[in-house]
Design a protein around this nucleic acid. Structure first.
Lengths: 340, 340
DNA sequence: GATTAACTTGCAAACGTATGCAAAGCGGTT
DNA sequence: AACCGCTTTGCATACGTTTGCAAGTTAATC
């Protein structure tokens, strides 16, 4: 016995007005007199009527749903972002349809097609590689796409990131000032703009002191890969006395390996710096020195950008990068030299 | 210049068939000859046609969207569950609309109304308190609701959990066999069935050995509250030599406090047992003995239950509890006695 | 080859809402 | 009382699909 859904027509009958009147009462910005509004509200209340968003989406072409494509939730950064996205969008009357996609471009493409079928009003891609071809097509179809925590060189796409280049530089500068001689880098995935930018900034930062990295290994944003990289670094003829790791998630794996497998002290034997400043980085077990990505500002900017484009039409793509501070904790020594 | 969306009508014209024919080709189970199927597929391919899911939802009343209500993503258990939910549902052709809700029943109610407006086919509530009144109303409206990782005593609701009672018992039994004399419990939130069941199982398990807990403090599933509980326990006249903590998330906070604030050794000074077995529990820094909740089986059962009810109509509510093994790691000593 | 059964196909009516258009109402000014 | 401008209201249509129905077509059996 399926409970029949209440429609605007039934409300109209009970209130003694036309269906259009009911619609107008529930459509912000439509004109309705105080008298009919009252009548309709009362009837709607009594029947428990609520407008059917599917029907509304069908007629207006706006679903008020935002598609969010995310790769892995294992890295704590993404649940944090997801939670905030959900809240920020809920405040604006939007809701989040979550898709998970591995990092293969084909899978992402398939997922984006799916999203378009749902008539989403906009798409946020969180750290997934997406062919710029596809985003351009979405934009052409009037559906804005914003890349979160990932950029794309020279492409016509919206992107919100932190200033990864500056972040990498800060780390390099800081580690030099701490007096480290052999500084290595377990980088973020080379296929990602974030990984590349942090790496480049780091190299530039060292260069500013006339130095260069001891070694750079791609950690693929993966725990196991990063742990292996740590082993390889420490077993080399010249082991590093400091390692800059491309994100916190890998940094935790590196710390675990150094401490519990290789029996090393942090920061006495090796200093570690991460990137992101996820909640876990502040827990005493890790107490990780890291570059904070200003998550809240990044999310808010992403949402603002998306909604602006939904409301006002797709404009010229914008790229925003927020500066993130270096949060000094216990995995590094105190610097000696002054900040440069 | 909004790019016009391609409709089934345009495909029909190009293929030289009726619009219904196009619809039938894209509707699984509808009858269409091989010839027209080919023609339609070709035309659709050329135009880049894909059925509009909103229109389809409107006519069929099925959106193929599942609403997922989740409280906090800070506890790693939930991102893991969310990821698996998303994947499992995607495989079945469903998609996930995520809502975050704090634990106030009013907020949850508001969110569920929102979900109903979206015509979701079903709702999963992950660890949020929901008035049974509301779930009954949803069921009456033909929308199945399944509670994940939370039960509700005697109410007419579907629920999937692990066997929290047995889990609590296992922990009690194990800690007694390890030779602990003073066993305390920092429990999960008393307002949640999971918290209560684990606690009750724990008490029963101790009772089976003629023992009782040294002390029980409600940790509210919150890091800070749990940390304070740990301090209070250790500062008491008789501090415990083992603490069963109501979930891993709190257990990490307790461990951090014991080690880094109180300078205690785990398990030499105090043994710690958690509940959930999130990924972090296996990392060497914590290496936490804990009761594993069989996440995959729980998620799959939730999805199966939900989809069965969507397809076959709402039947009698079912409650399922999966047994979870105790995973012994480094935060506890080796047991002496035999398993009972 | 006739008869019947099974399958295809097009027509048209939904689904529940928003909205352009024209008619109607209302208040104020002359 | 007549006129004007502005707001409110109902009518009817549209959004893009699925689906019952009846007509048409093909396949199968004797």
């Amino acid at each position: 016995m399926e409970h029949a859904r209440i429609t605007s027509l039934q409300v109209a009958e009970r209130a003694g007005v036309s269906q259009s009147a009911v619609s107008r009462v529930f459509t912000p910005g439509a004109s309705a007199s105080a008298k009919t509004t009252a009548k309709v509200r009362k009837a709607a209340e009594e029947l428990g009527y609520r407008p059917n968003r599917v029907a509304r989406a069908m007629i207006t072409g706006k679903s008020r749903i935002i598609g969010l494509i995310v790769a892995y939730l294992e890295n704590q950064f993404y649940p944090q972002a997801l939670e905030r996205f959900s809240n920020a969008l809920q405040e604006q009357g939007y809701h989040v349809l979550v898709f998970t996609a591995t990092n293969s471009p084909e899978k992402v493409e398939e997922v984006m097609r799916d999203l378009l079928d749902f008539q989403v009003d906009g798409i946020i891609t969180a750290s997934v590689a997406v062919t710029s071809d596809l985003t351009v097509r979405c934009n052409a179809a009037g559906i804005p796409v914003v890349m979160f925590n990932r950029g794309q060189d020279g492409a016509d796409v919206n992107a919100v990131t932190s200033d990864n280049l500056a972040g990498g530089r800060k780390v390099a500068d800081f580690l030099v000032r701490c007096g480290h001689k052999h500084i290595a880098h377990i980088s973020g995935w080379e296929g990602s703009s974030t990984g590349r930018d942090r790496c480049r900034g780091f190299i530039e930062g060292l260069a500013a002191h006339g130095r260069e990295p001891l070694m750079i290994i791609d950690g693929m944003y993966d725990r196991d890969t990063a742990a292996q990289a740590a082993r390889d670094l420490m077993n080399a003829p010249t082991p590093p006395d400091a390692i800059f790791v491309g994100n916190d998630h890998m940094a935790f794996a590196v710390m675990d390996t150094l401490r519990h497998e290789l029996g090393l002290q942090i920061p006495q034997d090796v200093a570690i710096v991460g990137f992101d400043d996820v909640a876990l980085a502040a827990w005493p077990s890790y107490d990780l020195t890291t570059v904070r990505q200003p998550l809240n500002r990044m999310v808010d900017a992403t949402v603002d950008m998306l909604i602006a484009q939904i409301d006002e039409g797709v404009v010229a793509p914008r790229k925003v990068a927020f500066d993130g501070p270096l949060i000094v904790r216990g995995t590094t020594r105190q610097p000696k030299g002054p900040e440069t």
